[in-house]
């Protein structure tokens, strides 16, 4: 049976992990490769690396990091942050990334999705949707959720899927960082609108929140950062918890 995926997200700046990371038994929590290996051995199903310092100069540093991760890690990983061209994606995939996540550039130039899918295939193209409600309607936001657009979340999600994206990574900017649970209602609507997998992001605080994202939000995967980095929710415990609630997970 296909299982629900648990995905830790690592924020990367200049080739190092940022945000306070307090991971048990890890000498250098700033080393993304060591952290990734620790998560893989804990049972994480995938990893996401988000380059928050994405600039032209940093592209090479990121590519080198991707290569080191790919050499060491035997589970799939996605790289995102500032990807705006076929050449950006080519560099990351060539260095061993399994998937890339595009965000703002796709909103500005939707044809980029078609170009990426034609060149690399749907299976490695994840489109990130950052949204919050404006006057009761979910609107896409850019630049880490700071810049609002007029683009409506569900309309955009359908277009992204039609253009051939392989997966959606939906982050509710309202829920992100609150630890109050995922945006389950919006997730459920999203799941009903597209026939590609949806990754839930933003709001994880307890193990019950993950169960809700799968059972109420009908998400295919759930992504979180700080609850894993600070070991507030150990992945093996989380998976046992989900399994006890009848949610298929890889243990």
């Amino acid at each position: 049976m296909l299982t629900k995926r648990i995905i830790p997200c690592l924020d990367i700046k200049d080739g190092r992990t940022v945000k306070g990371i307090n991971f048990v038994d890890l000498r250098d929590a700033g080393d993304p490769v060591a952290l990734a290996a620790a998560y893989a051995s804990q049972g994480a199903d995938e990893l996401v690396f988000l380059d928050i310092s994405a600039t032209e100069e940093n592209r090479k540093t990121l590519a080198q990091l991707v290569r080191r991760v790919a050499e060491r890690i035997d589970i799939p990983f996605t790289v995102g942050g500032g990807i705006s061209s076929v050449a950006d994606v080519d560099l990351l995939l060539h260095n061993g990334a399994d998937k890339v996540s595009v965000n703002s550039a796709a909103v500005r130039n939707p044809g980029l999705i078609d170009d990426l899918v034609a060149k690399f295939g749907s299976q490695c193209i994840v489109v990130a949707l950052d949204a919050r409600r404006v006057g009761g309607e979910w609107k896409i936001h850019l630049v880490g959720g700071k810049v609002p657009t007029e683009v409506e979340l569900f309309t955009w999600a359908r277009e992204v899927a039609d253009r051939g994206a392989g997966e959606l990574l939906f982050t509710s900017m309202e829920h992100d960082g609150t630890k109050g649970g995922f945006a389950n209602e919006a997730l459920k609507t999203l799941a009903g609108q597209v026939s590609i997998p949806v990754i839930a992001s933003g709001g994880a605080g307890t193990m019950a929140h993950f169960a809700d994202a799968f059972l109420l939000g009908e998400a295919d995967a759930a992504l979180a950062a700080s609850v894993f980095h600070f070991n507030e929710i150990p992945i093996p415990e989380l998976k046992e918890y989900l399994k006890d609630r009848g949610i298929p997970v890889r243990i």
Binding site: M1, L2, T3, K4, I75, S195, I196, D220, A221
Partner: peptide, 28 residues
């Protein structure tokens, strides 16, 4: 959902390719 993305289990293993691999182990 299409594509199928993620970890699924394999069974009815009938080849030396799966020597030492248990029924219902997960693959990506």
């Amino acid at each position: 959902k299409v594509p199928q993305i993620g970890w699924n289990s394999i069974r009815n293993l009938a080849s030396p390719l799966f020597q030492g691999v248990g029924e219902d182990e997960y693959i990506y």
